[in-house]
Design a binder for these strands. Structure first.
Lengths: 340, 340
DNA sequence: CTGAAAGCGCTTACAG
DNA sequence: CTGAAAGCGCTTACAG
């Protein structure tokens, strides 16, 4: 910037003014400055700018996600990015793989870069550093999962209700043995979806068989293995409720391997690709990850604007059911095990 | 930092030393400093640090992608991220939607933040700002697409060869009317894959019917529409080569709607979800997006380390064919149109 | 309308 | 082993 000032024969402040498009600069000088900028290929230094401009003007935001390569989280990413970009915010992001330590160190790094705020998708409830940061006043919004208490703005789908509706649909079709395949039980969404599963049973006075509950199968292979195991057991389920897209994928894989896809009903949480083309087509609870990202961006931006200073807000998005064939398959009598 | 120094009764430099884990600090002082840091909840300011530490130590890298929500680019993202993280680099990223202007402004913003280098996935060849930046010495690596000339390190799949092999397979199964459905023809990958398509035909002396070539159908709906159109035409293809995952998705959708999935062969570029479970299972050229990301990260890191200062490197990754049912479907005679 | 001074929070030489 | 000074590239008050 000094070079530019010298080149144009003006002071630093004048250069600063034209760079920031401030008023009160004679157009003659401004032209000279612009020429110098072009000649020298000058680019203002964002770090210095940000550092000198206290209080913050709002330029950087952080996005902490479980896995950048997971379509669910990358869709949230895009929703957030679009809102952020509209407000001049650039995103600094990283993946945690669900590891609380990774999450903590990532949050710490983001704070070091003095992001204006951070959106955490799939937060671990036990992340003390994150809790600290919230207490200290860093704007944080959680998407997809809730922290133990509502200590920050949060955007989630209506997990329990949607799960209850899906499982209820299976039960109403006559199924009495519906398996639940869920991810890490420490994760809030998994617990909520299980709660919905239970509520659906309770509402219909159908007992839940604990042998039909499989937790910690939150990836494709474990889910496929659990499906095989359940179906080969002495008292197999006649329907499956898979609490997450990767689990749904694993279950579908296993069902096809066993040739049972038309005999065992399936209702999944999260939309999956080719849901309409698969045979049978697959019924799902369709969350809107892009929308979740957008809403979290809205909340963050509102906090940054400073307008909102009240207590943490909770936004719950509706997750509609997409009824297709797999969820309408009737119980297969040959699969039902009769008591001895 | 001043507060910490005062609190611990030492100088700024001493605080700096313990924060940076430099040697030569009496452990007694170091403890006092650490205590002060904990008491005050001090966090070093990454911006100031980075600004003061010239030349750069390497902390920030940029990732420019077409669309964060596209599974292909998000897998590249993750590959890059893992390498970057291993080298202490944090990623600043954004989506361009293939718009050169968006790409330029994003690159400009990244440069303002003084990223140590940037990886561009799916670069538009015509981005002058990017070319400028490369000329100026900013380490840039292009993944997935090549710029018009090899002006920076580049990592791509063996597009033309893989496409030739896939189309060749179709031709060798007896197909004589193989349609090509591709994305934006301005994009390097689309042109390469078309080149492979042509080479496969030339090698077998099979003429290419221009009516079977559909460009600019790089999204699901346009691809489905093109598929419907081709198949309903007077001289329909007996096989489809879809040059990209979203196109493959669109084609599969249309084929299923028309009930033609078992009568028209299909070979896609890029792996798709449920390729094994779909009926028929779908044959594809399986690029390795995660690997592309990793390799681009390796190249970037090597440049940053300063070891590599030579001419731009070109890394070409093999893209193996995954033969499944759809690519082995024979030509359906009823679909062949005989000359009058 | 324009500029000289001080300061943002750190690190790099340099002394001691 | 420790510290005082200068400087990274900007912006914010303040003067004029």
């Amino acid at each position: 910037m000094g070079d530019v000032a010298a080149h144009a024969g003006v002071s630093l402040k004048t250069v600063s003014r034209v760079v920031n498009r401030e008023a009160h600069v004679r157009s003659e000088l401004a032209d000279r400055v612009r020429a110098a900028i072009a000649d020298l290929g000058y680019r203002p230094d964002g770090r210095a700018r940000d550092l000198a401009a206290l209080p913050r003007t709002g330029r950087l935001a952080g996005y902490v996600q479980v896995d950048a390569a997971n379509p669910f989280f990358s869709a949230v990413h895009r929703g957030l990015e679009d809102v952020a970009r509209a407000h001049g915010l650039l995103l600094l992001s990283g993946s945690t793989d669900g590891d609380p330590e990774r999450e903590s160190s990532l949050v710490a790094t983001l704070v070091e870069w003095r992001v204006d705020g951070v959106v955490v998708a799939g937060a671990e409830g036990a992340d003390e550093l994150l809790l600290d940061e919230i207490a200290r006043g860093t704007p944080v919004v959680c998407v997809d999962r809730m922290l133990s208490e509502l200590v920050c703005d949060t955007v989630v789908s209506d997990n329990a209700d949607a799960a209850e509706a899906a499982v209820g649909h299976l039960l109403d079709r006559g199924h009495r043995r519906v398996a639940f395949l869920g991810g890490d039980h420490a994760v809030w969404t998994a617990r909520e979806r299980l709660a919905g599963y239970r509520r659906a049973h309770e509402a219909r006075a159908v007992p839940v068989d604990a042998a039909l509950l499989r937790h910690d199968v939150g990836a494709v292979e474990p889910a496929a293995a659990a499906t095989r195991d359940l179906l080969r057991g002495a008292a197999p389920p006649t329907a499956l409720f898979t609490a997450q897209d990767r689990i749904t994928t694993g279950a579908i894989t296993a069902l096809h391997e066993l040739g049972l896809q038309d005999r065992v009903a399936l209702f999944g949480f999260d939309e999956v690709p080719f849901a309409d083309q698969l045979r049978p087509s697959v019924s799902v609870v369709a969350q809107d990850p892009y929308g979740l990202g957008q809403r979290s961006g809205d909340l963050l931006v509102a906090r940054l604007a400073g307008g909102v200073a009240g207590p943490p807000q909770l936004v719950v998005l509706d997750a509609p059911l997409h009824h297709r064939r797999s969820g309408d398959l009737p119980p297969d009598p040959d699969l039902v095990v009769h008591d001895a």
